[in-house]
Structures are given as C-alpha cells and as structure tokens.
Computed example of a mutant assay.
Amino acid sequence: MCLLNSVHNRPDFWHIDYPHCGGYSQSPVNIQTANAVGDPQYLAPFVMNGYDSAGDLQMDLENNGHTIQINLQGKGIYITGGGLSNAYIADQFHFHWGKNDKRGSEHAIDGQYFPMEMHIVHYDMKYTNYSQAANKQDGVAVLSFFFKVGMHNVNLDPVIKRFPEIPNRDDHTTIKKLFLRNLLPQTLDGYFRYYGSLTTPPCYESVIWSIFYEPINICEKQLQSFRNNVHQNLANETNRDISDDFRPLQPLNHRLIYCSK
C-alpha cells in the first residue's frame, strides 16, 4: 500500500507498472444486494480477539501520503470465525474519505457511496507479517465499515485530535491505545463477503473482503477534520489534501457476493 512514484499514477494506468492491477478479481466493487447469495451457516459471526483490550499493543498514527493509517505494532489483536479458515492478525487500519458527503467510500451498495470507509487489515497468522502474506491467496482479510453523517463520534476523537501533528506526508506520531471494538458498530453479525484485491498497487488478488451492513456515525465537523487537516506533499506541489483518494469501482466479472443473513 504505497503512493505511486510513477508518472502513471492514475488508476487507469496502474496496470502498466503493476500488472496485478489489471487482473480479473479486483477491488473495490459495487455490491448489488438483490444478487447477494445468503449463506448464514458459512458466514458465522466473527470472534474479535483483543478488540476490546489494548494489551501490549502500540499504535502509530501515520500520514503516508494517500491516507491516514494507524499501524498496530504487536500481535495482540486477531480475528477468527466469519468463515475464515485460520486466525488473522490485525496489522493496521486506515480511512478513505471524500471532499463532500456524497462520495468517499471505495465500495458502493446498490450504487450508493458513503462519505468515508474504514479498512481494518489483517493477515493470516501462518505468515510472519503482512508483507509476507500480501501476495498469497487468501493471505489478507479486510473488515470494511462505512460511515454515515450523524452524531459526534467520541471514539474517533483520540485520532482526530492528533491530526495537527501529522499534516504532511511521512509524518507520524504515537497515539494512546484505542479499543478497536469501540470504533465499530454495535451490530457485527451482518456483512457481505467477496474475494478481491488490495485497492492500491500492487493490487494483489489476495483479499477476503467482509463489508458490514451497519455504518458508523461521524459528524460533519469530524469529517471536515479529515478533509482539511491532512495533506500530501509532492515534489511539485504542497498542501494538496488527500480527500477523494479512492479507487474507481472494478468489474465484478462473475464473482459471487455472499451475505451472512
């Protein structure tokens, strides 16, 4: 998950430098709910180990030039269940947002976008780290959550209040440990499942996607903090905000999308 240095930095040209980006099973996609295949026996609820405990985990808040990312340093958080064949260790989570409330999410539901989407990225515990798992079949499992404009979300404040410390690309700072479960919706048993790719180069088709039904609340002022306070500094321009950093929808190409209920 890197910012492209190539002149071919538009998504339509990614495949030139990164051939996997032209693959058959790319992400994100539009989820057509009427066509989703129900499989509640296979898609059982997730077991989120360590999501409600900080343990000895360290959290590093990073502006990597294309998103805000919280790196999880340690192996205290992992998921099982959810139709996964193994335990998957949480490596980081990050956000995609838009310049206005009508667009920002990478995935869409019946053609509808959301103002922001959060990805919690996990890797199969049989691998040493995320880098080793990223190009392996089913090596990565991503939990995806949409945001809707609503009430102020106090659980995001510990992240947002540190934005002034990371205004530019490559800035990072250690933050107070968060309980990841507090960031998530109350109900987690409803989700869509499909098999796809990383949404940034090198676009490996290694991801088990789980996209949850229930969105997370965020207020307009908090969204503006994402839009206004975090920037991408390039060699030939400064203070370009990193809103609207989402990949266009990719063809489903006859893949099935499953739903848990």
Rank of each mutant, 00 (worst) to 15 (best):
R169E: 05
F226V: 07
Y123L: 04
Y191V: 02
E214H: 13
N35I: 01
Y130R: 05
A87T: 09
N236Y: 11
H66F: 13
R227G: 05
S6T: 15
R255E: 10
A235E: 10
N253V: 08
Y213H: 10
Q232L: 08
W97V: 02
A108H: 12
I70V: 15
G22L: 06
Y204H: 14
F212P: 08
N135P: 03
S6R: 11
D157Y: 07
N233I: 14
Q250A: 11
R103N: 14
F147N: 02
F145G: 08
D39N: 14
F246G: 06
T200S: 14
T187V: 13
L183D: 00
Y51N: 00
A235Y: 07
Y51L: 00
D244F: 04
S6F: 05
F46D: 02
L4S: 13
E237M: 11
H152E: 10
Y88S: 05
F13Q: 14
N233A: 07
R103T: 13
R181Q: 13
S25I: 07
K261I: 01
H107N: 14
F246K: 13
D91M: 07
C219H: 03
C203D: 05
I89N: 04
S6K: 11
I257L: 06
F179A: 00
H96D: 11
H8L: 12
P164A: 03
D241S: 09
F192P: 06
H20S: 13
G74R: 05
S225I: 00
N228S: 12
R247W: 10
H96Q: 07
G38P: 02
N49A: 06
N9L: 04
E205W: 05
L84R: 10
V159C: 03
